[in-house]
Amino acid sequence: MRRFLSCFAAVLLLTSALAGCSNDPPNPNPRASVPLSTVPVDLPRYMGRWYIIANIPYFAERDMVESRAEWKLRDDGKIDDSYYARKKSFDAEEKHYQFLDTPDPAKQNGAWSVQLFWPIRVTQLTLYVDPDYRYTILGYPGKNLGWIFAREPDISDDMYRSLLARLDAMGYDTSRFRRVPQRPDQLGKAGFASPGDKD
């Protein structure tokens, strides 16, 4: 019974976080109410390893460093979605979480139904991918969550600013994004998430 109640509480917490809760600060972006649009995705090119360069911190990814996703296209058209990260320290044991994603052909594979665990599914949107498939932006309809991914763990400051500018044009509050430390020397630097941040 205790395990059931713990799982039920986790489901409620996760659902409220992904749906956008009343604790989220108001979005000051004048384009906040403009709906997000997905972009077409070439799934074979999109697969592989992506490093999480920045995100809007939330409970499941808060305090994570060296985080990345690895996507593998299955024969049935679904995607094995693996998330790896370390909690607070680069010396911590690497955590691994496994999800199952189902791309929507009607959205040219730009929207994925992500099964976090049965029966919970959420919709993840691909908002941008560059022509060389080196950078991508993911989001959720309420704009309370968003991610910048890259094929390499480091990107230039100019590229980071250009990706934030794209998010701003989409109506995101870009002041909420924090860079994810991918190297120990990035911990504590301005603009990077630090363990214990409460955003």
Results as ranks from 00 to 15, higher is better:
144 N>Y: 02
137 I>Q: 13
151 R>L: 11
101 D>I: 11
83 Y>P: 02
116 L>N: 11
100 L>Y: 11
133 Y>D: 11
131 P>F: 12
151 R>T: 10
129 V>K: 10
153 P>M: 03
144 N>F: 02
53 I>Q: 03
123 T>C: 11
83 Y>I: 09
53 I>N: 00
94 E>A: 11
145 L>V: 05
49 R>M: 05
115 Q>N: 14
45 R>A: 13
122 V>I: 12
125 L>Q: 03
77 G>C: 10
107 K>N: 06
123 T>V: 15
93 E>W: 05
47 M>R: 09
42 D>M: 11
113 S>Q: 13
65 V>I: 05
121 R>M: 13
124 Q>A: 09
111 A>D: 13
97 Y>K: 12
104 D>Y: 06
133 Y>M: 12
70 E>C: 00
105 P>H: 01
75 D>Q: 14
125 L>P: 03
89 S>D: 01
68 R>S: 12
94 E>D: 04
93 E>G: 06
92 A>T: 03
61 E>R: 00
78 K>A: 09
129 V>M: 08
116 L>F: 12
89 S>G: 03
121 R>I: 13
122 V>S: 11
149 F>L: 15
67 S>E: 00
48 G>K: 09
120 I>G: 07
134 R>Q: 15
145 L>A: 08
58 Y>I: 01
96 H>N: 10
48 G>W: 11
113 S>E: 13
79 I>Y: 04
55 N>A: 09
123 T>L: 10
141 P>M: 08
143 K>I: 04
93 E>S: 08
42 D>C: 08
80 D>K: 06
117 F>Q: 08
133 Y>G: 11
84 Y>E: 05
128 Y>S: 04
47 M>P: 10
89 S>Q: 03
152 E>D: 15
87 K>H: 06
137 I>P: 10
129 V>C: 10
63 D>H: 00
49 R>A: 03
86 R>W: 04
152 E>F: 08
107 K>R: 08
54 A>H: 05
